[in-house]
Amino acid sequence: MKIDYIDKIINRIIKECETRDPYEIAKQNGIFVIEEDLGEVYGYYNSFKRRKFIHINSTLEQEKKNVTACHELGHSLCHPLEKTPALTKMNLVSELKIEKEANYFATKLIVDDRHKEQNMETVYSVLDFYGLPTSFERYL
């Protein structure tokens, strides 16, 4: 999938849903979000009988839940029929194309330019401002 196509999906979904909140976007698109204890797994996306589900680890801090929800929302909107691996700390920096695309989607959905008002000096301060992992620097 091309990056400009992902950008079009993000821009369309923000315009249609009038929000960047992944939980609200999921709700408006009929995607069920389930929070449950997933152990070491941050989250995963699956579909069953044409229904889409995003599973988020209930034990994560809120910032990590948000990043995970955005990442999994990326899978549900960009790769709805693909079998995607569960998101863990280990594959957060995965080189799999499908995972990089979901990370790109999450970054672009979360970053809304509020940081420009804060006079951020480094990419890492921008990532920290939005609660994104440092490994996402390549997507800014």
Rank of each mutant, 00 (worst) to 15 (best):
N91D: 08
N91A: 14
N91E: 12
V93F: 13
S94P: 11
S94M: 10
S94E: 07
E95I: 09
E95G: 15
E95C: 13
L96K: 15
L96I: 10
L96D: 14
L96P: 04
K97V: 08
K97C: 04
E99F: 09
K100M: 13
K100W: 07
K100Q: 15
E101W: 07
A102F: 08
A102E: 05
N103M: 09
Y104R: 14
Y104D: 14
F105S: 10
A106K: 04
A106L: 02
A106G: 08
T107R: 11
T107L: 06
T107K: 06
K108V: 14
K108L: 14
I110H: 05
V111W: 01
V111D: 00
V111A: 01
D112A: 10
D113W: 03
D113N: 13
D113L: 03
R114C: 12
H115V: 01
K116F: 04
K116D: 10
E117F: 15
Q118G: 06
N119R: 12
N119E: 02
N119L: 08
M120E: 08
M120K: 13
M120C: 11
M120Q: 12
E121F: 08
E121L: 06
E121T: 09
T122N: 00
T122Y: 00
T122D: 02
Y124I: 00
S125C: 02
S125W: 03
S125F: 03
L127T: 02
L127S: 02
Y130P: 03
Y130H: 04
Y130S: 03
G131M: 03
L132A: 06
P133L: 01
